[in-house]
Write a protein that binds this DNA or RNA. Structure first.
Length: 423
DNA sequence: TCTGGGGTCCTAGGACCC
DNA sequence: TCTGGGGTCCTAGGACCC
């Protein structure tokens, strides 16, 4: 039996989440900003119609946003993550196998379902169920490979006449769509590849699908070869239901304002290392390598630049906040230089082992903190309960470097005092 | 004044080994 | 005149994704 995938993708997800709890914004353009209110990362249909581009820095379009009465929101990740979980749980009820691909997308395995009902009808049912239970609109693309399902979804979004569902299992229909789509819309083709492909005369998705896979592999990469095969309906990417274990954990932020002093930087590094340690414990892993990095503003050519990224191996892999923070601070002390205006910093953990499986060498036994595990568990429990927040003093209390979120909406669905009240 | 954050995979090249 | 070959491991960098 040949495989059938569906890609379900939420429409303008972040902007839609904001509008769910603000019915007064119906018909008004909405944009959502990145962390630190830096650039635009999501737009409602109305905002797109105004020609506002994805990824533009806010300061470049500030006037324009005001002129057109655009509602502007800081990223409210807690809200989006919670709405996402609701959408995904509905998909999991409808399809036997689901791969949650990102916060607003999921692949479904529909293999064999067409013997029970038409794929189109199934897609419509998904839209209807998700819409009814969450208020979020989705589009559905259906095809024999993930890459084609992505393109089908793109078509469902672009052409309203499709009713938000495109079944691309028919090869002739595939060819017709591929001819219409520029090659840059194909999953896996970014800016660089697009440039190279176009100079080679490959402009549409159909041009790429018609290329010889072998020579694409020689001239480009194995990845693009796979894309060519996928575009021809040969499924090379399987559904991955089980989230793969993380290979690295990064915690980094741009600062709300430039940092020039060691003390503030130390606070920030402590905070990021603590957060990274928390994520590591959630993954049930211990890490053997920790790196930090500092960044000045590379966009400002007039400013002196300094971007160190030292890294250290831990004597024994650990998930203990105190050990990770201490290592991060040691690295910071060694690479810190006065006289720069730092814009961003981060902490990265790599080289993971499953908790409890690492074999320490003979000379290191006993190096582990005896009550470490219990203490970390207590910290995590308190911090996840919503009743309080415990942290190491090193990360500071004022945090003048904290990111800006001037237009943050309430945590409607995840904090008791923010629940909307109906009067 | 002002430009996100968090990931993955692949490849090339150097170090090192026999 | 001539300067092996094959393998592994690690890291850095590039490209992509949302």
């Amino acid at each position: 039996m040949s495989s059938v995938f569906a890609l379900v993708d939420c429409n303008n997800f972040y902007a839609s989440c904001e509008r769910l709890f603000r019915p007064d914004l119906a018909g008004r353009p909405i944009v959502v900003l990145s962390n630190n209110d830096g650039c635009i990362v999501a737009r409602s249909a109305e905002a797109k119609a105004l020609g506002i581009k994805m990824g533009v820095p806010v300061y470049k379009v500030e006037r324009y946003l005001q002129q057109h009465d655009v509602a502007v929101f800081s990223s409210n990740y807690a809200l989006y993550a919670d709405m996402s979980a609701r959408v995904m749980s509905i998909l999991e009820e409808l399809a036997p196998r689901v791969e949650i691909y990102s916060i607003d997308e999921a692949f479904l395995d529909l293999t064999g379902i067409d013997s029970i009902q038409s794929l189109d009808a199934f897609g419509t049912r998904i839209r209807q169920q998700v819409g009814q239970h969450t208020g979020i609109r989705v589009c559905v693309g259906i095809a024999p490979s993930k890459t084609l399902a992505k393109l089908a979804n793109h078509a469902a979004k672009q052409y309203p006449a499709t009713g938000g569902v495109v079944d691309l299992t028919n090869p002739e229909r595939q060819r017709r769509l591929l001819a219409l789509v520029p090659v840059s819309e194909v999953w896996g083709v970014g800016r660089r590849l697009r440039q190279r492909l176009e100079t080679d005369g490959i402009r549409t998705a159909l041009d790429l699908a018609s290329a010889n896979p072998k020579s694409i592999r020689q001239q480009y990469s194995v990845i693009l070869e796979r894309t060519v095969r996928e575009l021809n309906g040969e499924s090379c990417l399987s559904l991955e239901e089980i989230t793969p274990v993380k290979q690295q954990i990064i915690c980094s932020r741009s600062f709300g304002q430039r940092i020039t002093g060691y003390q503030e930087m130390r606070e920030a590094i402590c905070a990021y290392a603590s957060r990274a340690a928390e994520k590591l414990r959630q993954e049930q892993r211990i890490a053997k390598r920790l790196s930090i990095f500092l960044r000045t503003n590379r966009f400002n050519a007039a400013e002196p630049q300094y971007m160190p990224s030292p890294s250290a191996e831990l004597p024994i892999p650990t998930d203990d906040t105190r050990e990770l923070v201490a290592t991060a601070v040691k690295l910071l002390r060694a690479c810190w230089k006065d006289g720069f205006r730092y814009m961003k910093a981060g902490v990265m953990l790599t080289d993971f082992y499953e908790t409890g499986t690492f074999q320490p060498d003979l000379f290191n036994k006993g190096a582990e903190h005896p009550r470490s595990k219990a203490l970390m568990a207590v910290m995590d429990t308190i911090n996840q309960s919503g009743h309080g927040h415990v942290f190491l003093a090193g990360q500071g209390i004022n945090q003048v470097w904290k990111m800006q979120r001037r237009s943050l909406s309430p945590a409607y669905t995840t904090r008791w005092q923010d629940i909307p009240v109906v009067k």
